[in-house]
């Protein structure tokens, strides 16, 4: 559908230009002063390497494989995430777990390798949805870049250790989930 563009008729006052120009220059001057007096941290521009954007809640960035407080991996290598992944970027190899004297007394499986090809991943969050153990989270790190393809293939160690602080985003569904999630403390050895 065509749009009828209305021709703007200027009044003689506007056609003098001088006044309109002066008003326009006032506007730009206001912006200039405002921007000049705003401290750097409050400006719109985020000066990237020095400042980083606060990602919103529920942002889906780089995955983290969660661990229990004592360091044991939560993942039980059930392959749910691998099945759910629409981009087929997760590849898991399971192994039997036998060190009973250490931690996970009642679990038999854990991933021997857990690889995510970040070049294929579309960060849809399906793996997070599918995980029965809440072991894989998509968190707020978006700085995924590398010089070669190989280093974009994240392994288990990378996925466990990328995030320094243990908890990134507040779980949106934490209230419902918390009773079902077996906390490490509740399990008696």
């Amino acid at each position: 559908m065509g749009v009828l563009v209305k021709k703007v008729e200027l009044t003689w006052w506007e056609r003098l230009y001088v006044v309109s120009v002066a008003i326009g220059m006032g506007v730009t001057f206001k912006h200039f002063i405002k921007q000049l007096l705003t401290p750097t941290s409050k400006r719109y521009t985020i000066q990237y390497p020095d400042m980083k954007k606060e990602m919103p809640k529920g942002y889906r960035g780089l995955h983290e494989l969660k661990r229990f407080e004592d360091g044991a991996i939560k993942c039980v290598a059930c392959f749910m995430c691998q099945e759910a992944c629409p981009a087929r970027c997760i590849s898991i190899e399971a192994e039997e777990f036998s060190e009973l004297n250490f931690t996970q007394g009642f679990e038999e499986k854990r991933p021997a390798t857990f690889k995510i090809d970040m070049l294929r991943c579309i960060f849809c969050g399906m793996c997070e949805e599918a995980c029965p153990k809440d072991a894989i989270w998509l968190r707020d790190n978006y700085e995924l870049a590398a010089y070669d393809r190989l280093s974009m293939n994240f392994g288990k160690w990378d996925l466990i250790n990328t995030y320094a602080e243990p908890d990134g985003k507040a779980r949106l569904t934490q209230a419902e989930e918390s009773p079902m999630t077996p906390s490490r403390r509740t399990v008696a050895l």
Binding site: T28, F29, F32, Q35, R43
Partner: peptide, 10 residues
């Protein structure tokens, strides 16, 4: 720099 300030840039 001036143009940046006018346009709320840096």
């Amino acid at each position: 720099r001036g143009s940046a300030m006018i346009q709320d840039r840096i």
